[in-house]
Write a protein that binds this DNA or RNA. Structure first.
Lengths: 155, 155
DNA sequence: CTTGAATAGTTCGAAAATTGAAGTATATGG
DNA sequence: CCATATACTTCAATTTTCGAACTATTCAAG
């Protein structure tokens, strides 16, 4: 094992600093969802936020790096509470499109507003910095979605 | 409710773009932990990574925005597997310091290396961009840890 | 067409993660 | 010394996630 003095002393690489920041933000965001008026669970909030337009469940699964059965469970819950409906995808009748109801849109707007608000307060970044951070975040996300399946040999 | 054409059309604010990127990275990272040689669960990986130096459990709880009993469970698991030991904090004998063993350090180094590697591959950012992203991430994290308790009236 | 293989999503039971309330031990401030 | 607060633990219950087996639909040959 090579000398690991750097890590032991806590001098962290930029990559790890970035990751730590990402964790902090993620956890903070999750915490916020607990504080909002809500019968919504975290996965339900995530799905709602992702549904800016009708999407197939498989797309959501890929997007959330989750598994089909998890998506089913979350969609079931949201559907039962009236936030969305399932519609067959006319282009492939095996697939469902998840479509927000009016109530779903309203709640999504509220969540998005709260999350944006939180980001502003929690991050402490000014407008330019936020824009720059967003730019990089988009790039990262595109890259991740593009590469899809993890490099790992999958367990 | 104000016109929400913007969100309906999917034109997302920088804040939401940032959040989406953060989610994507977080989830990708989690996925990576599944692919590594490991008897380690996700929370165990998180804790290990945070333990670049001995830390009190309460500090970890605050850091991971988690609850004491969760930290206890994770620390128990890591201790049983020989990754860390508990030592009384000499400054406050109610508190424990979690101290990595040699095995713990080795595994932590491996995890940190893997995570850094993943960040490089997944993000697609070049060195300067990574440095800039890391700078902002640090700023965000500092800000979050500083503000501590969420603004919300706590549920 | 008809068949066989792949894909989209569902079901369901098990495993993993998280929580909150009650408890133990130590600290701190009159 | 006492009362209260803090640091962590225990434990039972809840929530979340997963994987394997299953149904329905599509696609590609033949």
């Amino acid at each position: 094992m090579p000398d690991d003095i750097n890590t032991r002393l806590g001098r962290l690489s930029p990559e790890i600093q970035a990751i730590m920041g990402v964790y902090a933000l993620y956890w903070k965001l999750e915490e916020t969802f607990d504080c909002i008026e809500t019968d919504l669970s975290h996965p339900e909030c995530h799905m709602l936020i992702k549904l800016n337009e009708p999407k197939r469940m498989g797309v959501l699964a890929a997007d959330m790096l989750s598994v089909p059965s998890t998506i089913t469970a979350t969609a079931d819950a949201l559907e039962k509470q009236g936030y969305l409906i399932r519609e067959r995808d006319p282009e492939d009748r095996r697939a469902w499109l998840l479509v927000l109801t009016e109530q779903g849109h309203e709640t999504r707007n509220m969540l998005v507003a709260e999350a944006g608000d939180l980001f502003r307060r929690a991050s402490g970044l000014n407008t330019e910095e936020t824009a720059e951070f967003a730019r990089m975040a988009c790039k990262i996300r595109d890259n991740i979605l593009k590469t899809g399946i993890p490099e790992g040999l999958k367990k």
